[in-house]
Design a protein around this nucleic acid. Structure first.
Lengths: 333, 333
DNA sequence: TTGTAAGCGTTATCAT
DNA sequence: ATGATAACGCTTACAA
């Protein structure tokens, strides 16, 4: 059985109230008593029960973090940053990987609420793709909700937004300025963020007076081998393109590999741009130029916002985080 | 304010006991009453308080997961598997990234204990490198502790072990059989697991009657650029080796890149083997042959063991998980 | 089938 | 400076 303050109380000959005071470093306890109590705690290896504490205080200093899948490099780096910052502030992280199923997301959110987390952070725009974000707005009535890379309008909801649209548009524009007319776009999702990126691609073309061609837009699961195969097929079919922009680094690497496989020199005969500036872009050979939307910055800002909200301060419900294009050897631009 | 079973009780005209019964799907409640209570719950958007429940039952259906850093690909994939399996069983995961500091590991473990997690899973052999694993043995008096890829002897501690030693030894032996005599070994840590790998390298050499040369053992932080630079220097200095075995895929990729940078064809003039069979090994160009110690299998077995322990079954305190060498284009073997 | 009441381990408010 | 006690929201005998 676990030991309680009653055990400490009995063994040290003081009341549980005093034990509690010592435990919480409250003043109004004589130094002698304090020492005695601490000694007993040490001796019997006492660990306070956070439930009991949480029951009374109605806070357990824990924040729920929801994401599709931590094994995804991008999400893992976000979760890592969030967890670290939360811990610095004395909060724990209850991790919840939802997968793609909408019903699961809903019920997992309920689980987090029932564990009385002090806030919930949703990472990735997957949470607003289904259209039905009502349950999130509903949940925000109980605790503040922070979105990393997504936007939902609602009371007590705070959104960190990345300019995915502008970043892709500018990158594509640079390719166009570099003389490219036929640019392949590879994507894997149609979440909010995914649509923003695609719109960026299309807008850049339109602005340059280049027609949008469906055969130059390739949907493909985010899987290296599968992407490589599909891009390779396009190459073999002679669809004809001399630049590739991908919604994910993994696909960018696939594009590079598909080209090399066919003896197409990169970046001379084909330029490739990925997204996320992850370690994959650095592993690529040649190195993959990649768009960095700065998740880490988004996460830091998110935590900042959250603690501001905890303190009752007024914060904007959406904050835009800027990104940048990180150039490596897969492009000439 | 949050709603409680008292609110439901009042509004539906039944006692809190009945509300509780409905909440827990217990029998002995008339269908009519059940429906009425459920309707009220739905109406006022009731969320049960897990603290209160946990206080009485002394379990909150949550498992603590500790690792150095989830942004590490290997650890992220482990955490992902653990979280998923735990959730299937109805458990949440309290994530705790400790960083390298020993004192932090200690105190974070205390935090988990105070949150009354039902078990603690330690991922990675970092937890037993400091030598002082007393606090873990101590913690095991309160809850079962599972180690992924590490071994500590103690009551209520269960260890999933990987044969890092044998895997590296066999891989190096294969290189030796392939005609290599001067094989560079690159490593980044001296944790338990790290030492096992190195021992595997040395043993393979010794068994083949090849002397161990210090200049062929390179310590290097797990960082792509830094590793590439250091391995490159060795190449430039003419240290002379025609195969590289790395303790991490990231370093394997670095070795491949260092060689390519100098026009050394892979695998013809140099063979490279990495470790973990992560996505990095697939991104590498040419693809990196890599040792897979099967974290996912370790994690599944860990969860299996854990729930066996929960049910009071007797489980071995150490389980060995076998791995394999996954061959890609960076080797001829 | 339903209700009453004790108990879970804290914190906080009064007294003393 | 210290102690007694209510309160937190739930589960679960035990009664009715």
């Amino acid at each position: 059985m676990q030991t309680t303050i009653y055990d400490i109380s009995k063994k040290s000959g003081v009341s549980i109230a005093t034990v509690s005071r010592v435990l919480n470093n409250k003043k109004g306890v004589s130094e002698k008593t304090r020492q005695k109590v601490l000694a007993v705690m040490e001796e019997i290896g006492y660990t306070p029960n956070a439930f009991a504490r949480g029951l009374g205080l109605n806070t357990i200093k824990t924040v729920g973090i929801m994401c599709m899948d931590v094994s995804d490099i991008y999400l893992a780096s976000a979760v890592s940053t969030l967890e670290r910052e939360l811990r610095h502030k004395g909060y724990d992280s209850l991790l919840c990987c939802t997968g793609a199923n909408a019903e699961d997301k809903r019920s997992y959110l309920q689980v987090l609420l029932s564990k009385r987390v002090d806030a919930i952070i949703l990472v990735g725009s997957h949470f607003i793709s289904g259209g039905d974000s009502g349950y999130i707005i509903e949940a925000a009535r109980q605790v503040p909700i922070i979105l990393i890379n997504g936007y939902i309008k609602g009371e007590n909801i705070y959104c960190m937004l990345t300019d995915d649209f502008g970043l892709v548009r500018d990158a594509v524009s640079q390719l166009i300025n570099g003389g490219h007319r036929r640019i392949l776009y590879v994507y894997d999702t149609t979440t909010y963020s995914g649509r923003q990126k695609m719109d960026g691609y299309k807008t850049a073309l339109t602005q340059a007076g280049i027609p949008i061609e469906e055969e130059l837009i390739l949907f493909c699961k985010k899987n290296l081998e599968e992407s490589q195969e599909k891009i390779g097929q396009l190459l073999d079919q002679g669809v004809g393109f001399d630049a590739v922009v991908c919604a994910e680094d993994e696909q960018g690497v696939a594009a590079v590999k598909a080209a090399i496989e066919r003896g197409i020199p990169i970046p001379e005969k084909m330029e490739v741009i990925g997204y996320n500036n992850s370690i994959l872009s650095r592993c690529s050979e040649p190195g993959l130029t990649s768009i960095d939307n700065r998740v880490e910055a988004s996460c830091m800002t998110a935590i900042n916002t959250l603690f501001g909200v905890f303190e009752g301060k007024d914060f904007p419900d959406r904050i835009l985080i800027s990104g940048e294009l990180v150039k490596r050897s897969s492009t000439k631009i």
